[in-house]
Every structure is written in structure tokens, then in C-alpha cells.
Design a protein around this nucleic acid. Structure first.
Lengths: 381, 381
DNA sequence: CTATTTTTTTCGACGCCCGAAAAAAAGTTG
DNA sequence: CAACTTTTTTTCGGGCGTCGAAAAAAATAG
């Protein structure tokens, strides 16, 4: 990227750009590129001298924890992922006593296997399913663990010199969407992820919103029907109990809605299978998806009433079957909310991509790195 | 206030304070006070020379529109209200054609009666019940008008040289709470006002949150029971249809829940009367308040799941009867939400005070004035 | 009257940003 | 191929807001 483009992007004068970039060159955060191969259409004028972020300046690690699996990725200062690995663990025995060492061991092995200096890792971003407390740095409750209140930040921080940050996984999808298309995903929007559970991320007034304890946006456990279907959390009537894989399975099998979710034989392929059966014309599955669509519509309607986002993004494995939910969802929206409050809404359906969470974690780590390296060290001296 | 205290409050050095205050003195925004009467405990050292905001520098007007009444107040640059008046109008005929001139006439009369220069009014803050669109500056729908889409900002702005801002009335309560006790009411909290309808204000990450179109936080029309009781908005099952005065009346009278709210004989005293009957032991009223408490509990539970505020403030005329709703509300909270998500919650019950909205309007106008006068004109020159 | 204490102001400096002008490095033209 | 044009980058001087240190101001204490 040339200096003049940086000026246009940041709205700073060329003079300022030169000042800042020369500082950063001195510190080794960026490097000049001696482009020997001039890009074809080289017009008049002094040619641009391109600058690039120096990938070697720092490394970051993203850690995504889902049920029985840890996804690790290593990225350089440009954000490029140059090493990744999946590690499996036994979710049924993981608790506050056992999991921290499982995790630190996995990360340590990962770093040495990548052949980088452990000290070059300046940020570690961790995302987990379930309810997390970002302040305390622990997972309050998650299907990924058998125990509760699993500390993750503390153990990692003690083992590595990096700064460690724990986030809600759907929040990271939200962050990733914002980074991938800032034009579209800015201002105020909400992300609803239908998957093993139902998660939510909120981007409000151009910032990722994290509640008081970092446990916000748990729309999956917002009540849909008082005293309704049994949810994994033990309550009744949560939105999740009408939308998640176990809920759909329970409905298609005609089981009572207080059947214990733990007894439902869900697999990572459940949504896929249900979608295929619906496409094959299975009336029972279609009816269940219709019901789920209704629940989703009411959930979105309540969200609109409280937050009024300009856009709602639907994603997650469960959204595969969206075509069978769409009609009921819109009917529910209309039944639940006066037109004035839903007039300006846009709904995006984004095909699920596991990589979103990883991308979000790295984007967030990059932002933090920028603050540390550029703002603090960089200019003010 | 002395310069040294300003320094402590703003974290600026004494040198900077002197620079800023001398600029402001020159511009007449603040004045020095020659305190002839030294405050009793005058110790050693150079005595503080106090500074005060110059009340005469500017005036602001707050306009609160409720059903058939306009509350006007005039405040000086210190925020002191020195003139106020109530004006009545016919809500049943007020619409987009008639109301704007009613309003501008009322404000014009008010200003001339106060004996101030119209040009000295730099900000006019307007709050209305119902759904407002702050961007467009019009009231989309409100019980205070018979028509829809009533423009308010445009007409006032044309008549006066002031900047005019339209806000949701519950948002102004939120703003007022923050100003009256910034220690307690900061960070992330929600205000639920139970009155003629049910309104909500959100303060998120130290800022008043207004959704994409300014119509956020309409929790009253968030669905409580799909297909449930009939609401004034025409939908079924809105939270309001279980909490508002007409809803309580409908329940105590044993009427079907699809009875048209417009036919319920509510008065401004309805809540008061219901409260008295409950105190007198009227089992029907007590049962109705119990039901309302349940609805409120579910509403708060859903709010917690989505926003996770550290505090929820309950206020409004309808909160008079809170003691009869409290038990059911807590039961509903427990039934609706896992403990993890409600653990950190504090509920404040703030007795209703009509003055809140006015205070919030003026606080907001002051903030805007500060931005205009101090930031823009003041320093940068 | 001198010392002490506290508040306020003055002074010089630094960091960040800017506009204007100059320099650099190419292409274009006669 | 030298002079001109164009575009990008750098240099230079200045403005603004902030700061620390020192000085000044205004009171009390002894």
C-alpha cells in the first residue's frame, strides 16, 4: 500500500503519513517493498513506493474451543494464518481441574511444532461455546465441559508471555463479519447463530457490544414460551429449546417437549440430515422446521423491539434448513411486531463457515496488537 | 468551582486548566465569582478563586409531550429552570396537519411570556410518548396524537433559530438518572417505565443507546406470549398488554384478553386506584398485579439474556403497585433464566417523578450546547 | 516581618498534525 | 536528450493542546 492511499484511507495529510510511516519503519513494524516488477499500467509521475506490514514483527494465536475439540491457528502480524491444528480432548471429563493443563499443553506443543519463538506470540485469543465471563477469564458454563467455571485466561497467561483474551464465540463471528465487509457490517447489527445451541453477537453503534460481565447476547436462553419446552440449561421455554438440533430432533420424533435434551442423539450432522429429509418431502421434519421458524421469528421480533438493529444476520449450521423456516419466520415477525418497528430491517443469511470464529479472533488480536505496538510504543515518543 | 478542582475532575494539569478557563472567560461562557464571604474554614494558602458557568450565555427549552398536554420549561446555561408552563391540547384531533402549529404557537407564547430574547434559545429538546424517529424528527406513532408521522423537529426549527432534537421519553429518564447519580447509573443499565404504556431506555457502555432509527428500546411491544392478549398496537401478546393500566383493568374486570384496549376506561389515576384496592385486600386486583409481575419478570429475563445490564431500574406510575408485583416477578425471573445470567443483577425501584423527563431533556441539551460552544468555538481558534 | 502553605499563572518544551513548498522519480514531447 | 508535465514523497515552519517546572499570588502562622 502506498503512502498516498494511506492518507486517503485515514484522512490524514501526506506530511503526517510520512512522519508516522518513517517512525514505524524505524521500529520494524512495516517494511518497504522494492517492487522490481512495476505493475503494468505505470503512468506518469513519481511511482508509488509500497509499504507492507512486517509479518515477522509479532505472532498471534487463536484458540477455538468446541465440544471435544480445540482449533489452534497461528497468524503473523499481517493476519496471515501460517500454521493450524486441531486437538481433540474428552469433553465428558473436562473440568476446572483438568482442562487448563490440557489446553496449555496443547498450545505449547503447537508453538514448538510451528518452530517459532514462544516470546514472539504477543496475543492469544480464545473463544468458547457457552457462557463466558470475559472479565474473570473463565467459561461459566459450556457444553464443551463437564464442570463449571473453567479458568482459561489465567493458566495461559502464566505459561506464555502473551496477553490472553477470552471471548464468546458468536461475538467473534460478529467481529469477523465487520472485518470482512465493513461497509455492510457496521453501525448496529445483530448476528444470530443457530448451531449446537443458539448464540448471538451484537454490534452496536460501530462497536462490538459485550455486556457488563461479557456474558451478553445469550439470546438462546431468552425465554420464548413461559413454561414451554425443556432446554439444556434446565429452564423451560428458552428459544434454544425450539431451534437447536436436539429441539428439532425432539419435535420430528414426536417426543414430549420435556424430554431431556441430554438424551437426544444429536451428532454434528443432525442439521444436515434434517435438511435432507425436508428436501425429500418428509412432512414431519417440514412441520418441525416450520415451528422452529416461528420461534426464530419471535426471537428476532423481540430483538428488534429492544435493540432495533438495521440488520440481522443468520448463520450457523442450523441455518442450512433456512428455506424451510423462512415462511414461518416472517409470519411470526408480522404477528409479533408492529410494522413501524420492523420496517427498516434487513435479514442476511450467511452460509456457515467454521473459519469465521478463527478470523474474528485474529482480527481482534490484531486490533489489540495495533493498540499496544503502534499507539503506545509507536508514536508517543 | 475552583480551577484546582476542575483539574482533579478532568485529569488535566493546572497549566492546561488556566489556559482553557481564560479562553472561556474571554468568550463569556464562565464568570469569576468574587466571594466576599469566605467559606468558613479558610486555611492557609492562596484562596481559591471560584468559577461559575455564566447562566446568561445561552438558554435551552425542554418540551415534553404527553397525552393532551405539553410541558414547557426554560433553563439557562447552568441548567437552572427559571420558567415553566403546561399547555393543553386536544389529543383526539391532533395530527400531522394541526399539531405542528399548535406546538410552535405554544413555544412562541412561552418564550415571549418569559421575556427572553428568542435568539438566546440555542437548543430545544422535545420528548414524546410513543415511537419516535429521531433522525426524521417525527413521532411515528403515539397515544398523544390521533394521526401518524407527526413532524415536530422541522416546524420548530423553521420557527426558531435553535437546534431541535426529538427523543424518546424513556430515554430521557435514562439520561436524567445518569446525570443525577453518575456513580450509580453508568456503564450498562436499563430503565423500564411502566405507565400508560411500557417504555424502555438503555444506557450501554457509558452511552445512551438509540437504535438505528432512534426507535429502539420499545420493550413494551416486545412479544410476551405469542398470540396472547390484545395490545393497543393491534398485535397480540405484547408485554404492554399484561402490564399497562388498561391491561390491569381488563384483568381485574375479568374481561377477555382480546377486549379492545381503546374501550377500557383508563384515567391518569388508574394505577393509584388499583394500588389502593390491592392494599385494601381486593383479591382480584392482587391476582392481576401478580400476573403483571410475572410478565414483567419474563420481560426483564429476556432483557438480561440479550443485554446483560448490571442494573435494571423500574419506574413510572405503574410501579406504585410494585410491592404486589415483586414476588411474581422474581419467580418469573427464576423460571425464565439460568442463574448464571441473572446472578449479577441489581433491581432499583425509583418512585416516579414527572420531572425526570424534563431533567433529562435539559441535561441532553446542555451536553449538546457544550459541544457547540466549548469544543467548536471555544478552544479551536 | 518572615516563613509556610495552597492556588494560580507564566514559561518553555514536546507531540501531533497541517499547508506550502520543494524534491524525487517517473513519463511526454519536440 | 533536454525541457516540461505529472504524481508521489519529503522537508520545513507553524499552530494547537498539553505538560512540568518554576514563579507569582494570596492567604495564614509564628
Amino acid at each position: 500500500m502506498a503512502r498516498i492511499d494511506l492518507g486517503r484511507a485515514t484522512q490524514l495529510s501526506p506530511a503526517t503519513i510520512t512522519a508516522i510511516t518513517s517512525d514505524m519503519l524505524e521500529e520494524g513494524l512495516i517494511v518497504g517493498i522494492d517492487a522490481d516488477e512495476p505493475k503494468a499500467p505505470l503512468g506518469r509521475g513519481r511511482p508509488r513506493s509500497l509499504l507492507a506490514i512486517d509479518g515477522g514483527a509479532a505472532n498471534v494465536i487463536s484458540v477455538r474451543i468446541s465440544v471435544s475439540r480445540i482449533d489452534l491457528a497461528l497468524a503473523d502480524f499481517t493476519g496471515r494464518i501460517f500454521h493450524s491444528r486441531k486437538v481433540y480432548y474428552d469433553a465428558s471429563t473436562a473440568n476446572a481441574a483438568t482442562f487448563p493443563s490440557t489446553l496449555t499443553d496443547a498450545v505449547r506443543t503447537f508453538v514448538s511444532e510451528a518452530g517459532i519463538e514462544p516470546a514472539s506470540v504477543l496475543e492469544i485469543g480464545v473463544a468458547s461455546q457457552g457462557i463466558v465471563d470475559t472479565n474473570k477469564g473463565e467459561v461459566v458454563w459450556s457444553p464443551a465441559f463437564s464442570g463449571r467455571n473453567i479458568p482459561l485466561v489465567g493458566p495461559l497467561q502464566e505459561t506464555f508471555s502473551a496477553r490472553v483474551t477470552l471471548s464468546n464465540d458468536t461475538n467473534m463471528i460478529t467481529e469477523a463479519l465487520h472485518w470482512s465487509d465493513p461497509q455492510r457490517y457496521s453501525g448496529t447489527f445483530a448476528v444470530v447463530m443457530v448451531d449446537y445451541g443458539v448464540g448471538m453477537g451484537l454490534f452496536l453503534d460501530d462497536h462490538l457490544f459485550v455486556g457488563a460481565s461479557g456474558a451478553a447476547a445469550e439470546i438462546g436462553h431468552a425465554n420464548h414460551i413461559p413454561g414451554g419446552a425443556r432446554c439444556r440449561c434446565g429452564r423451560r421455554g428458552c428459544l434454544e429449546a425450539y431451534l437447536a438440533d436436539y429441539a428439532l430432533l425432539r419435535m420430528t420424533q414426536g417426543l414430549a417437549d420435556d424430554t431431556d435434551p441430554a438424551n437426544m442423539p444429536v451428532t454434528p450432522q443432525t442439521f444436515e440430515e434434517l435438511h435432507d429429509r425436508a428436501e425429500g418431502g418428509d412432512a414431519g421434519v417440514i412441520a418441525s422446521l416450520h415451528q422452529a421458524g416461528t420461534a426464530l421469528g419471535y426471537g428476532i421480533a423481540r430483538l428488534l423491539a429492544v435493540i432495533d438493529p438495521a440488520r440481522v444476520v443468520l448463520t450457523g449450521a442450523g441455518i442450512r434448513a433456512y428455506p424451510f423456516m423462512e415462511g414461518a419466520m416472517h409470519e411470526a415477525l408480522e404477528a409479533a411486531l408492529v410494522e413501524d418497528l420492523r420496517r427498516s430491517l434487513t435479514i442476511d443469511v450467511v452460509p456457515w463457515n467454521e473459519d469465521f470464529i478463527r478470523r474474528g479472533l485474529i482480527a481482534q488480536a490484531m486490533r489489540r496488537l495495533d493498540e499496544t505496538l503502534v499507539i503506545a510504543t509507536g508514536r508517543s515518543r
